[in-house]
Design a protein around this nucleic acid. Structure first.
Lengths: 164, 164
DNA sequence: CGCCAATTGTTTAAACTTAAAGAAATAAGA
DNA sequence: TCTTATTTCTTTAAGTTTAAACAATTGGCG
């Protein structure tokens, strides 16, 4: 504890420049890659990134998910998902029905054509990502995975503490 | 080169699952931190993240920047910056004038109050970031910086190759 | 000079995104 | 049971974002 000349507690401004620079670099990487993927999805398949992301969530489950599940997994607001799903239903990629056991719940699934189209997009998408990271060695990839896991845990803890 | 039974060239589908998982984890980290920062900026200062980011760019230069410079640095579209600047001029945080030497160019700067407000926000912002990364050791931070620099370079190279 | 290309910024339409308020249904507890 | 809280989803208003088309200006080059 540090006390000033009139005996009040004082916070010394610490230097957190390294963490700030790390955050900016992380943001730069993500923005860069996101832009690249967005552009390729549009050029090759005329699809937007949010639509692709939502379909990716649905592709992982055969029996569909609720809108809340999608919202939590994508870390976006509920209202956002409502709009995205509306457009994907409109375009025939997604099927939506009310749950039999809980009439609040909407269950959404990929349609047959939606799933087929997504699989084609996903296959190419994976090669783009591989190319984007192609200068990293397998060891780099493992190390990044480990450090980002630690980062994720630290950020979540920080978010939980703020919620109190 | 791999040939199939009828002597045509065939691409073997390689496994790029690790790179894909790395990308998703990177995206998760960024989304998580971005949401945390966005919420705090709104609660504490009633300011949006894009406005804060733009002011952060301007704070680094005393004599102002052109809209194109801001656009490149923030990695967002020109039209996006036009709108953001319009609102920041409206709220009195940013000053805008046409360049003396090139009438196409708009030079924008922080106003006195804009700079003062930003400095206050930035000081707290830095402590939030430090808290978010607080479970990382200094070595972790250095390693992440290094690996993300490599990632950034790899992604940029990939983007350049696509532009050809 | 005069044309042509490139740069700079704005406008437009559509989509995305959030936060907040609200509606409907379910769950929980007195 | 009845009331209250919670969950789920939608709606709304405002703001952000992009891609594309456009206007204005500058620079290069014959």
């Amino acid at each position: 504890m540090i006390l000033d000349s009139e005996t009040k507690a004082v916070e010394l401004p610490e230097d957190h420049g390294n963490e700030l620079r790390l955050w900016l670099r992380l943001l730069t990487c993500t923005t860069l890659i996101e832009g690249e993927v967005r552009g390729r999805l549009r050029e090759r398949f005329d699809v937007t990134l949010p639509r692709f992301d939502l379909m990716a969530q649905l592709d992982k489950v055969p029996d569909g998910m609720t809108l809340s599940d999608v919202s939590k997994r994508m870390m976006v607001s509920n209202g956002n998902v409502t709009g995205l799903v509306e457009r994907l239903v409109e375009s025939g990629h997604v099927d939506r029905r009310t749950s039999d056991t809980d009439r609040r719940v909407q269950v959404i699934r990929l349609t047959k054509t939606g799933r087929a189209e997504f699989r084609k997009m996903a296959a190419e998408h994976e090669t783009w990502i591989a190319q984007i990271f192609s200068d990293l060695t397998p060891k780099d990839v493992r190390e990044l995975m480990r450090l980002l896991a630690k980062t994720k845990a630290s950020a979540r803890k920080s978010a939980r503490m703020r919620d109190l």
